[in-house]
């Protein structure tokens, strides 16, 4: 019986050790400091951002009145006129697949080129079944159909890659679009944040990196042919991450929130006179 008691005491000691080492209720367990760990910002708001270029912000961004979208050459930003999306192309990854499937009627007239796992590294190998055209690659689609607006939401799938290289690839991608459709307005849509639970634990896919890419996208806008639209304010919580109640996998929105996103894009269209006619 002595051995039973001794081993029981030993087992109890191990359990106590585990409690003090791992339990969040233990006074000895290291706790996270108060407040959000990652100070995330929206790309257009330099005042509270983590952008390293704070000392020399992009001049156009400072004159932004609406989510960093600048309009020149008779362009305006607002509710898309009737037929606006008839000649719009929307390119994106799985989140845009969700937007296409569940976004409702706001963007339904657009042409969609969206595929899970797509990014600027692998878009040339991706084919999508495009309504009215069939299974095509992006460059083939651009050659077959004329677009005056091209929305792009890419980046999350390769967000863990070297940022300099990613930006270079993205730049080449934008250049390809501009070459294929010289008169099209390229609208770079912000990559949505991920939930805090993912951002805090994922060394690759986290909100500081997403913001870094979004900041770079913002800096690409030139006011005439390349624009940027920030959308994270729609779904973020106070810590600047995607609100936990909006997602089950910490990355993709529940379907019921996509209509909100599509309505936002439709109500912040970059249009000029004659669009949609």
């Amino acid at each position: 019986m002595k051995k039973v008691i001794i081993s029981a005491l030993l087992l109890t000691a191990v359990v106590v050790w585990i409690f003090f080492s791992y339990s969040t209720a233990s006074p000895l367990t290291k706790k996270d400091p108060e407040g959000p760990q990652n100070t995330v910002s929206y790309a257009f708001d330099r005042g509270r951002g983590t952008d390293s270029d704070d000392s020399n912000p992009h001049p156009l961004a400072q004159s932004s009145q609406l989510n960093g979208i600048i309009f020149t050459k008779g362009l305006a930003v607002g509710q898309a006129p009737e037929g606006y999306f008839n000649d719009a192309l929307i390119i994106g990854d799985s989140r845009i697949v969700g937007l296409q499937l569940y976004g409702g009627d706001a963007l339904k007239d657009a042409t969609w080129f969206a595929a899970t796992s797509m990014g600027v590294y692998n878009y040339s190998k991706t084919t999508v079944d495009v309504e009215g055209i069939g299974k095509v690659g992006l460059e083939e689609l651009l050659a077959k159909k004329h677009f005056t607006k091209i929305y792009v939401c890419l980046g999350i799938n390769q967000i863990g890659y070297d940022m300099g290289d990613h930006e270079a690839k993205y730049g080449a991608f934008i250049k390809m679009l501009r070459t294929a459709c010289p008169d099209a307005r390229v609208v770079l849509v912000s990559n949505l944040h991920v939930a805090k639970a993912r951002s805090d634990t994922d060394s690759a896919v986290n909100n500081p990196r997403i913001d870094e890419l979004n900041n770079w996208l913002l800096r690409q806008q030139n006011g005439s042919s390349i624009f940027y639209i920030e959308c994270n304010q729609l779904f973020d919580d106070e810590s600047g991450a995607m609100a936990a109640e909006y997602t089950s996998d910490r990355t993709h929105l529940y379907a019921k929130y996509y209509p909100q996103w599509s309505a936002y894009l439709a109500s912040n269209a970059i249009y000029q006179e004659g669009d949609g006619n």
Binding site: Y102, T247, S248, D249, Y254, A255
Partner: peptide
């Protein structure tokens, strides 16, 4: 199904 959300 979970990602979409059951209500959708």
């Amino acid at each position: 199904a979970n990602t979409i959300g059951f209500e959708s």
